[in-house]
Design a protein around this nucleic acid. Structure first.
Lengths: 124, 124
DNA sequence: ATTATACTTTCCTATTTGATAATTTATATT
DNA sequence: AATATAAATTATCAAATAGGAAAGTATAAT
């Protein structure tokens, strides 16, 4: 769970800026900006983008400010395939590359197959 | 004025993902996700962050996305784990199984290799 | 004690969201 | 082409949320 408000607050204080400055950059009432910092309101993507520019930072730096690294949960539609991918990552580089080359080839083959089916008149 | 919805749509289509996949990653109804792509709704920062991770991109890259290149060849190596899963799931069953058998074989080989290295005295 | 500044909170209503269902559109399959 | 199936869009509406204005704190300076 990310808390953009807290991050913005920390950053703003580090830069010793006033709320009303940031609020005006983000084009909102100071009272509403205050609510964002305290978590009572959500920032819009648009406002956060403006704030990031004002701070001289990227949006991502703000979103993930100082929260070490959470290893990004992989959500998958195909659990079996996911497990296989995990297994692939355990292979040594030589084997891994071999697998990748094979998959590349297969996909490319299928792409061409589809392309011909869709675009070329099959002679009867 | 930024139009995150359009950008998400373009990126999703380049990756040939379905709306419902992205919607589920972002933890929202497919119908509401559709509205985001068409600009009838706004993405929350939280949802956009999840989508960015799923796309293997930064939030900023999505916000300021301008399409440039549509790479032709498939290079699995460069993909994120999510995308690898998706690519593999696109293979037809025959190819998929072939890939799986190859991986199984490689893993088995490696397991035995490790086993011998750890348990059998190499004769000098 | 008064004034000023920085920020917070309350209150109200207008807008936006999320969930479901119903449609429309696209894509295969026969 | 007709039909089935899946994907995407639209409609609807109660409920949650956001925005604006004004009042309230807190602290500091005069």
């Amino acid at each position: 769970m990310i808390s953009v408000g807290k991050n913005i607050k920390k950053i703003r204080e580090q830069k010793s800026l006033m709320q009303k400055e940031v609020a005006s950059v983000a084009d909102m009432q100071a009272s509403n900006y205050s609510k964002i910092e305290s978590g009572q309101r959500d920032v819009s993507v648009e406002a956060l983008d403006k704030i990031a520019q004002f701070f001289g930072m990227t949006v991502d730096e703000i979103i993930h400010f100082e929260d070490a690294k959470t290893p990004a949960a992989v959500k998958v539609e195909d659990k079996t395939a996911n497990e296989k991918v995990h297994l692939i990552s355990q292979l040594d580089d030589e084997d891994k590359n071999a697998v990748y080359r094979i998959i590349d080839g297969m996909l490319t083959k299928n792409k061409f197959q589809t392309f011909f089916e869709q675009n070329i008149q099959t002679p009867k």
